[in-house]
Design a protein around this nucleic acid. Structure first.
Lengths: 245, 245
DNA sequence: ATATTATGATAGTAATACTATTATTTTTGC
DNA sequence: GCAAAAATAATAGTATTACTATCATAATAT
């Protein structure tokens, strides 16, 4: 009996509820990032789905709408009716990713009242490896996570950042940094750099994953030590406290 | 009398010796990064000098050898005789920058025996704002620093990283991370993540400078709080000790 | 003074990053 | 079931990029 109950609980916590929730969610992405909402048609979803695969395969630099057109058996010009250019498409995909991450974060932390436990959970969510693709949607989150690791910086390291920031293209990401910053401040209201610590964790996580893959000599993260462990440890050392203590 | 002595000491520490040393230094940059050594001719130096200005002005994406040719009144094809392509040129400039930083780091820390003081100094050097251009060379370090902040990530976030890493294009940067990591380990040999902490500081510094400029709402660094202060504080909190104590 | 080397000028190619126009499907509303 | 509307595909065209190749000329070294 208890075995069955535990198994049920496992199912609920690990999969069902969360997954169903995620499937019914429509990401709230800045409308200026697309010409026509890719969620509104089959072709649009195909563009996003196969776009993710192609960017993952050949990298953002080599990725072109022409190649994507060939891959999906569609015309280049049709893709231009959904996205102005590949930069906007990257911003769109990034917003999708951070929106998805935000849902996971909010879902996993909202019911936690203890501020340390909450922060601990938040960092685990933000720095966790996206392992399985449980989605029934057209978005492969595992690959999208890898794209974000390798390409996200390129979306803001441009001469147009300030304008694009004003247009609200980075809103979701900024809100995530802010949420994390608030959780840090809740644990230690006297810590003077909650924003910098939060933005550093967000960006540093992607970087540590990248190093683990391409510069293993520059990180202590590996098969046994996850970026999440490193950052949880870092945060609680910095705030001179322990996750639970 | 004491005033004069103090003034002399100020001059030596702040400027003369260091500057002269730097001017006579030839950066030890991987030879595969250029076709012909730009240090070996007037045109080569001009390409580097004006290249830095142009990349700073229009950003790496918009930067082309044709535009640089026009700027220096030289032919596009002549630039190709120095660098294979703009990506290699970026790697070259980055190597120059990290080589220069390494000199500053080694010079400023080698005589410090106290490990905490040494680490403190190292972080200050790595995270310091490059304010003045004291150089008599063709390289404008202030602008190069800004280029590194905005463009360095693009030099390794590519599909070719692993090959280029094998070719040794990132050697100097890696050595810097290693040096910092060693200094961290010297202060706290039991700290389990010295490499991750070091690589995070190196990368995080650039990121905090970028945020300060373009996303001030995501950082506590500003006119009064420098990234150096934030990172020194972070490191010594993490290692559960103080810079001098 | 001449051979060598460096630089400049010109031309050319394939690919990129689009825009515009027209044709053909597909969808939908009645 | 049909016409109108909307979506997609096909084609063509432009300016720019990222080169390569060749040849001419200028600078320098012996």
């Amino acid at each position: 009996m208890i075995v069955i109950l535990l198994f049920l609980q496992f199912l609920i916590s690990k999969s069902s509820i969360m997954d169903r929730l995620m499937q019914s969610i429509k990401m709230d992405i800045n409308e200026k990032l697309y010409v026509k909402d890719p969620e509104s048609s089959t072709l649009g979803k195909k563009i996003v789905e196969q776009g993710i695969l192609l960017i993952y395969e050949i990298g953002f630099e080599c990725f072109t709408f022409k190649k994507l057109g060939t891959k999906i058996g569609s015309n280049e010009s049709s893709i231009y009716r959904y996205f102005e250019n590949k930069h906007k498409m990257l911003l769109y995909l990034a917003s999708w990713y951070w929106g998805w991450t935000e849902y996971k974060l909010v879902f996993a932390t909202h019911s936690i009242s203890d501020s340390k436990e909450k922060l601990n959970k938040a960092v685990e969510i933000l720095a966790q490896t996206v392992k399985e693709d449980k989605s029934f949607t057209h978005v492969n989150e595992v690959l999208l996570n890898k794209i974000v690791i390798s390409e996200y910086s390129k979306s803001y390291l441009t001469k147009e950042v300030d304008n694009e920031n004003k247009e609200g293209y980075f809103t979701i990401y900024k809100r995530l940094v802010d949420r994390l910053s608030e959780m840090i401040a809740a644990v230690d209201p006297k810590y003077p750099y909650p924003l910098s610590l939060a933005s550093m964790v967000m960006e540093g996580t992607l970087h540590q994953f990248f190093l683990k893959e391409h510069f293993p000599a520059l990180t202590n993260c590996n098969d046994k030590v996850t970026p999440a462990e490193y950052f949880v440890d870092l945060i609680f050392r910095t705030l001179k406290t322990k996750p639970n203590g």
